[in-house]
Design a protein around this nucleic acid. Structure first.
Lengths: 214, 214
DNA sequence: CGGGTGCTTGACTAGCATCAAATGTAGTGG
DNA sequence: CCACTACATTTGATGCTAGTCAAGCACCCG
């Protein structure tokens, strides 16, 4: 990979191994309740985080008070890496979650490939641009379900955890439109929804879903 | 900055100075005619590039053949840094341009802060997500003009260089809608358009423009 | 029971896409 | 010089999609 090549050639950092980090300081994990704030816009950026369990939403508030969710981070994903030293967005737990912080002064003992994290997040952001601009509510929701399903490749059923409002703010739609799209996906026999909040998805036709979302 | 802190603390790389790179190999600049291809999807990623003059469009083609422009890069901006070693998108010159390539084996002599580049591009991509989701053709076009104007802070007049089609594919709109928005901005006495292709912008009311684009 | 929350459904409307055509400019050839 | 083509932009008419406003349902809890 281009960036590994670069890192390795002009630095004395050993081959970055993301996995190693987990072992070093297990007791520092932070447990969070649903909707608990991790950091807010304007705060000093002291650490980056890796999700250990649950999910985190990264969002911004527009001048008009509109919430826009930039990304959801699930187990293993990193967030909190900023261009400057001030937070430009908010981070909250979507549900009961656990995250592990890495402060700047801790990096020394833990070789974290920051470039890899940044590029992964960039790729995620670009993919999201495509989905959102692809201009069709149904396709956006299908793409969202695909994204969630990809995080549970083995399970026949999984819990999205996000509310309809979260999904709407993520996809740039309204709650009503998201609900209508889910019923359409149900009518097309592509998925089933279970649970009292209808957030548990059982995929019936994964192919049809990915066809839709392209 | 968080990432500089990190880079500096555990690597032996000197303080990254982007500017230095330009001096090392001036003769390697590549001159491009309008619409000339720089690289294509699927190619092996051998280098990253810095724009010296003109502008570059980075885009993808969807399964349906739809072009979607992820970003425009102007003078000083970097592009071509990928997550893997294969190009995931296309790069073309918007107009007559000049770019400077940096191959992996050249990095050794030139301290390039790849992380800084990646984070800058990430910030750009996130900002664009906000603009596109902000859901109003006029606001999107206003935000686009703002973005272009910010690249010419001193000039009273500047050439956008992109066609209406480019702008449409960048903002997720149609050519017709973009044209209508420009006439609306003219009617509101926010800007004037000059040149045979109506791509030269003179801003009359920069404040109104930025108010619109938020 | 009543109130709260989150999801769904319906009726109506605004805004953008679509299709179609006109305009303006440049270049070519008679 | 004028006719003709080619291209980019603009304008107009129409239809569809998603937003808006409103109401209803299911579930939970005090």
């Amino acid at each position: 990979m281009l960036q590994n090549h670069a890192i390795v050639t002009h630095t004395s950092v050993p081959e970055p191994r993301l996995g190693v980090a987990r072992e070093t300081a297990r007791d520092q994990s932070i447990r969070l309740k649903a909707d608990e704030t991790i950091y807010s816009e304007g705060e000093h950026a002291l650490a980056i985080y890796q999700v250990e369990m649950g999910a985190v939403r990264i969002y911004r508030l527009t001048a008009s008070g509109q919430r826009y969710i930039l990304s959801f981070c699930s187990k293993g994903e990193w967030f909190g890496l900023e261009t400057g030293d001030v937070r430009t967005d908010f981070a909250e737990a979507v549900c009961e979650s656990s995250i592990k912080p890495f402060r700047a002064n801790q990096y020394a003992g833990v070789p974290i490939n920051l470039l890899h994290i940044a590029l992964t997040n960039l790729a995620k952001a670009q993919q999201k641009q495509l989905v959102i601009t692809e201009q069709s509510a149904l396709k956006r929701v299908a793409a969202f379900v695909c994204e969630m399903a990809d995080r549970h490749p083995e399970d026949s059923e999984f819990d999205m955890m996000m509310s309809r409002g979260d999904i709407a703010d993520y996809l740039g739609l309204t709650v009503e439109t998201v609900a209508r799209c889910f019923t359409k996906l149900r009518e097309k026999r592509i998925l089933l929804l279970n649970g009292k909040l209808q957030r548990i998805v059982r995929l019936l036709d994964r192919d049809a879903l990915s066809t839709l979302s392209i």
